[in-house]
Structure formats: C-alpha cells, structure tokens
Design a protein around this nucleic acid. Structure first.
Length: 761
DNA sequence: ACGTGTAAACT
DNA sequence: AGTTTACA
C-alpha cells in the first residue's frame, strides 16, 4: 500500500471505472481507479406497477434494485417518497435501459438521470471537489482511501502546469484536407513556434515538446473550441499517417481505446480546455485561478467547469447541495419548474421591474461622494431567505405572493457560503503586496466569485434554470428598490443632496464640508447592509440621453476624484469598438477640462482649452500627421459565422474582405475608407496585421465626425456646438439615388452569399 | 440559455 | 419606423 498528498487534477468515467488523476506534492502524476456503478431512481405509477417493475428488473444479472426513501420536492422538503433505486454493474446497458424505462407506462418519473456520471460519482461517493488538496492511499492503481485536506483559505492555486497551444492551417479553416501551417506553444517563460513546412515534422516536434514538458493542462488558444481543434488535429494526423499521442499513458492502450475516439477526442491524463471568446469558458476574463473557483463552485472536473455555461454550473451546485440532503433530481424535460404559474398581466407588470434609478441632476457637480452597497443582491438573498422554494403564489389569496420559509433556503445557503468566501479573499487582497503573484490570484478569485454571485441572482428568474422561480427574482428586485427609497430618505433627512442613484449606488453632495462617516453608519444600520465609498469626486458631470434631453440615462457620466483619477461610464472611452485615437482624444479632453481649481474656472478656462483640443484633433485627422493605422482601427467581434449575417455591417464587410476565412469569434479589425460608398463592401478596409508600412487612405469625414461625436458627449452640456467646425452632412435629397443603391446592394449581397457558399464547399 | 437597457447601423 | 447586433 502506498500513500501520498497531492491535488485532485481530474476525475472522469471510463466504462465501469472512475479514473482519478492526482498531482502529488513531489510533482508526480498518479492515475488511480475506483469502481463505478451507475444508478438512478424510478417513481412507479402505482403499487402494482412498482412490483412488476421490480420483478422484471431484478431478473437481469447486471441490475440491482431496492426500495429507498428520498425527497422529491423542493417545495415540500419534509416529504420522503418511496422510490426504486436501480443500480447497474457497468455503463454498458445504461442508455438502452433508460430509453426503455422512459417509454414504460408503469414509470411515472425518473430521477437523477440528468446528472453526468462524473457528477453522480462526485456528489454521492467522492464528495470532494476536483482541484482540492487530498491525501490518498492506494494499492497499485486501485484507490483505497481518499480524504480532503482543507485548503479553502489558500490563495495559491494547485501547482498544475499549463501549456498554451495555438494552431494555424494554410486556409484558416479546420477541415482535415487543410495542412497545418504552424503550431505555437507557450509554457512558463518558454515561447516556441513549429512552422518549418513539413507537417510530420511539426507534429513530431509538438508531440516531443508535450512529452518533454509534461503539462497538466493544455489551453487551446485561438478562435476554435477545443473539441474542434482536437478533432482536427487527430484526424489530420491520421490522414497523413502520423500516430499522434499526447496523453500520459499512451502505452496503456485500454484507456485510449475508449477515450480517444475521433468523435470525442480527449488527451488522457491532461486537462484540455479552450480559451476562446465564448462566454462559456471565462478563461480570458478570470484566468486560471478563476477557473479553479468555478470548478469548486460547480463541484465539477476542470474540463467540465471550463466548458459549462454559468447556468449549468449553478445547476450542478444546486444538485450537489440537494443530493447531500437526500433529494433526487427530477429530469429537466418533465420537471415542473416554477414558471408554470399562470399570472395575469397586471400581476406581471406590478412585479417585474428591475433595479430602480433616481434621475441624475444633469450637469456639473463639485464634491460628490459615490456610495455603493457591497454585494447588495447577494446580501438581500441571505438576509431575507429568498430562495427558489420560499416564494410562491398562494391559491387561497388569489395570486398573492407568499414568502414561506420554514428553514434556510437552498439559494441563500449557497450564496452565503460563496459570499463569505469572496469577503475573505477581498480582505486578503488588501494585505497582499501589489503586483505579487498572490495578489493576482486573489484578484482572479474575487472577480470569479463576484461573477458567480451576480449570476446566482440573475438565474433565479431564468427560464432555463431547473429550479428557477421568477417570484424570487422579482422579490429581490422589490427589496432592492425598497433599500434605495430608504437610502434616499436617510440621505435627505441628514441634509445631503442626492444627485443620482442607480440600483445599489448613490451619489450625494453636501454644501458644507463634513464628515461622511455619519451617513455611512446610518445607512448600514438602517438597511442592514454594508455600504462603502466608491469614489470621492472633485468634479462630476452627469449626462443626459443624447436622443432626448428630457429622459435621463443610466450609467452615463464622467468625473475626476480628489486623487486625480478619471472615472468614466457609458461614454466613448469605455467602448471597445472605438478607435484608439478617439479614446486618447477624449481622455485628454477630460484631463484638460478638469485641470481647474473650481467649477467657475472649469466653465471658462477649462472649457476653452478643451475647445482648442478639439480643433487640434480635427487638424490631425485632416492632415494625417503622426497618425498610424492602429490609431484609427476599430475592433469588433464577429458573433456568428459569416453566412448567417443578413445585413452587411461594417465589421461583416471587413470580415468578408479578409484574406483568410473569417470565423465566428474572430476579432475583426478595420478602418473606414469611404463610409458613404454605395457598396457596403467598399466602406471599410480590414486591417490584418496592425503594424503596416503605411497608413491606408481613410475616410477623413467619418473620423472627423467621430471626433465631434466624442466632443459632443463630453462638452455638450457646456454648450458645445459642432456646426462651428464646418459643414455637417446636409440632407441633400437623394431619394432616387437611394432607391438605386438598394437594388444594387441586394445584388451584391446575393453574389456574396453565393461566393461564400462555393468557398466553404 | 444569468438579467435588462441602449445606441448604431442596416432594412 | 422597425429590426438586428454589439456592448455595458
């Protein structure tokens, strides 16, 4: 017997065994097996059907059946129902048995059939989150004993090693006919490229590198999802007769046999995840440590956690918690979730209002304090026990919402645990030295947990949430509005002026300089929520909506704090799809405007200097001096495959004109060359590699308009008049012209669609 | 398949 | 004027 301490790298199912990979403290990897017997529950239609079912099922050698009492209803958690538990010896007959029972009229409902096998094993048997620190005892490859070593307070992630991987073909698409052009790898400080033409050599170098570095995790970069990359890689290797082996036990053939089929490629013993744009991975946004948080929250293996959408991640946590409390999981297809409540239109209208906004007092303000409630929604869920099962419509009281809460609900239990965890890391972050590895990890944990908490709230009202309950969602919103109203009253009672408020933040101002501690203490005492200072503005400008000056818009302001930090919401600087030149210009504009000691100076000297800057920026655009293409380039994400677009948006036109085949998820970079051109394809030019030799001819008018737009959003309030800067595009009546344009446009589009079709074939 | 709101460009 | 897309 051997024992070791390490981290749970991966858990997966291989026919009748669970495979566990442990990364030991010494840096070794250990592969262990544990028997797995899949199971599920049957609710029979009636007693005689039950007996018949048991009789039939127990005849099979592969199947063991027995009665078990389990909770079936989240709403009635005290009720235990007698169910038939079916346990199979192996996975071999699992699917066919399930199919048969789904059609069987003696079966009223099946439970736990929606869970992945790995979830079944993790929730019911192992009860240790993947990535946890563990102590294991084993004999050969047989797992004898495993226990969790508590590492919940550790910022350091498990010492898993990562290999970043990127692949390009000549054509840009991943069809097995296309040859591999280049493989790029990054491992620690190491950055390598294999691109010397001969494909077999590239693959050999790649395979050698993987075996030499022996990474635990392979991150597929680029625009494809990992399944596609691996499928391509293995099918391409097969096609050119290269035996590509990247796994950890390639000589041990029995596992490869099952896991590395071309339909569902896996690399044995390593985690393979993709880091593409899709919201489903979050790898870029929250980093590797953020992914660890997700895996632990979802109680899922890393690979699954990386692939799962937030909805499925939350569902997995919900199911884990429920399984611990002897619940069984209804299948999604026939689970009557809480959306079936039929309500009248009035009930919906009165219930469903999101966060509340108190209109901003448009214009320039001095000395404004911005206060934010910390994780308001999460705290409301915990404080008021708002859960999927605690809110329902009362039939007696004709559709009134009642809050029924005998015990702490499922949602508050989960939210509380991860809220505490986030608070812990947030405190720790303040103590850690800036720019240290630890602080970066801590930051990733904090951000990932924040995202999870926000989504826990958001998904309560989601149709796709198995346990979702709109009533809970609406109740959270209702309470948050109540908090804001209370806040407004307190602020005004204490003699402050409220200039703006939006869901969980308030902007307040007092004419005399005073200590703000009083209001912070009063607010947290009277609302039961913790509130903190977000910014203390020297100057703050609240903006009106451009389209209609009477309707104020939310999250649309800019200011500068007493620490000289610019804060900007909702205007051009914040957007990704705005050229750098415009962003830089607007930033400079704000700095110039705010470089004043008080508001009267700002309104005169500050504003005049800003106007000067506008003139300069327009000059730069018109002459092109000192500009290069990266200043003018606009980046936009291609959200769908090019064939799907019905309209030729600028970025779509640019994508079509790209030399390589554009794919969904690509970031398209382009500049405007002639924004008024009849043919949408001629309006823009794609920029393929940012540092080109010369600045291409660009649409000066268009970029000047952008400068003026950016100036207007910032200076509009101060009386900025764009017409001073020369002729606006006048509405020359070109009606006939327009009609002609349209017809032409349609022809191009059709032609383009045909071209694309032939290209992809 | 977390929610809602808004602007810009296309039809 | 209404719809689609992307972003916050």
């Amino acid at each position: 017997m051997t024992s070791c301490v390490g981290w749970l790298l991966d858990v997966s199912i291989d026919n009748d065994h669970v495979i566990l990979w442990i990364k030991t403290e010494e840096g070794q990897t250990v592969k262990l097996r544990d028997p797995y017997h899949p199971g599920f529950y049957i609710l029979p239609r009636n007693e005689s059907d039950a007996l018949r079912l048991i009789q039939i099922l127990s005849r099979e050698e592969e199947i063991a059946v027995r009665w078990e009492y389990r909770r079936t209803s989240l709403f009635d958690s005290n009720k235990q129902t007698r169910l038939i538990h079916v346990k199979l010896r192996s996975l071999r007959y699992y699917q066919s048995l399930l199919k048969k029972l789904e059609r069987d009229r003696q079966v009223k409902q099946l439970y736990n059939t929606d869970l992945l096998h790995v979830q079944q094993y993790l929730f019911s048997k192992l009860k240790i989150e993947p990535t946890s620190r563990v102590k294991v005892e084993y004999n050969g490859s047989k797992l004898l004993e495993i226990s969790k070593i508590d590492d919940e307070d550790d910022v350091n992630p498990p010492p898993f090693s990562l290999l970043y991987f990127d692949l390009r073909t000549y054509s840009g698409i991943l069809a097995s006919d296309d040859a591999i052009r280049i493989i790029k790898l990054r491992y620690g400080e190491d950055d390598v490229e294999f691109d010397n033409g001969e494909e077999k050599v590239i693959l050999q170098q790649f395979s050698d590198y993987v075996h030499e570095k022996n990474p635990d995790i392979i991150v597929c970069m680029g625009d494809y999802d990992k399944g596609k990359v691996l499928r391509y890689l293995f099918s391409r290797a097969k096609k050119i007769g290269f035996d590509l082996r990247l796994g950890r036990d390639d000589d041990n053939d029995d596992t490869n046999h099952y896991s590395n089929t071309l339909e569902n490629p896996r690399i044995v013993g390593r985690i393979c995840i993709s880091s593409n744009y899709r919201k489903t991975t979050y790898f870029d946004e929250f980093g590797f440590v953020g992914l660890i948080e997700r895996a632990r929250f979802g109680f899922l293996p890393l690979e699954v956690a990386a692939k799962y959408s937030i909805n499925r991640l939350i569902d997995s946590r919900n199911c884990f918690e429920l399984v611990q409390k002897d619940f069984v999981i209804p299948s999604k297809s026939n689970s009557s979730n809480n959306h079936e409540h039929v309500r009248t239109v009035e009930q919906i209208v009165s219930g469903d209002k999101g966060g509340m906004i108190i209109s901003p007092q448009i214009g320039l303000h001095e000395n404004v304090l911005a206060l934010d409630y910390d994780s308001e929604y999460a705290n409301l869920i915990v404080n008021h026990n708002l859960s999927y099962e605690t809110l329902r419509l009362s039939h007696e009281a004709r559709g009134k919402v009642v809050h029924h809460q005998p015990n702490k609900g499922l949602l508050p239990r989960i939210v509380e645990r991860f809220l505490k965890r986030r608070v812990y890391f947030k405190r720790l972050l303040k103590e850690l030295p800036k720019d240290s590895r630890e602080s970066e990890w801590c930051d990733q944990r904090v951000n990932s947990l924040k995202n999870i908490l926000v989504c826990l709230y958001g998904s309560t009202g989601s149709l796709w949430n198995r346990f979702g309950n709109v009533l809970a969602y609406e109740e959270i919103n209702r309470l948050s509005r109540g908090v804001l109203i209370k806040t407004k009253d307190i602020v005004q009672r204490l003699g402050y002026e409220l200039v703006y408020a939006d869901t969980d933040s308030v902007f307040i101002k007092s004419k005399t300089g005073r200590d703000y501690n009083e209001i912070i203490n009063t607010l947290s005492k009277e609302t039961g929520l913790s509130i903190s200072i977000e910014y203390h503005y020297k100057f703050l400008v609240l903006l009106p909506l451009e389209a209609d000056e009477k309707i104020e818009v939310l999250k649309h302001y800019y200011g500068i704090t007493f620490d000289n930090e610019l804060v900007v919401r909702g205007i051009e600087i914040r957007r990704h799809d705005i050229p750098n030149f415009i962003k830089q210009f607007q930033t400079q504009l704000l700095c110039t405007l705010f470089d004043c000691k008080d508001s009267s100076e700002l309104l005169t000297k500050g504003y005049e200097n800003a106007l000067l800057l506008v003139t300069q920026a327009i000059d730069t655009i018109m002459t092109g001096e000192g500009l290069d293409d990266k200043d003018l380039v606009i980046s936009k994400l291609l959200r769908q495959n090019i064939e799907k677009y019905k309209s030729l948006f600028p970025h779509v036109s640019a994508a079509i004109r790209l030399s390589k085949h554009p794919l969904k998820g690509d970031t398209i970079q382009y500049i405007y060359t002639d924004s008024q051109h009849n043919n949408p394809l001629c309006r823009v030019a794609p920029i393929e590699n940012i540092i080109s030799e010369s600045l291409p001819p660009y649409d000066k008018e268009k970029y000047r308009e952008m400068v003026l737009d950016a100036s207007e959003t910032v200076l509009g309030f101060f009386g900025f008049d764009r017409t001073v800067y020369g002729n606006l595009k006048t509405n020359n009546d070109e009606r006939g012209e327009r009609r002609r344009k349209w017809r032409w446009y349609e022809e191009i589009l059709e032609q383009r669609v045909r071209d694309i079709h032939t290209e992809t074939l």
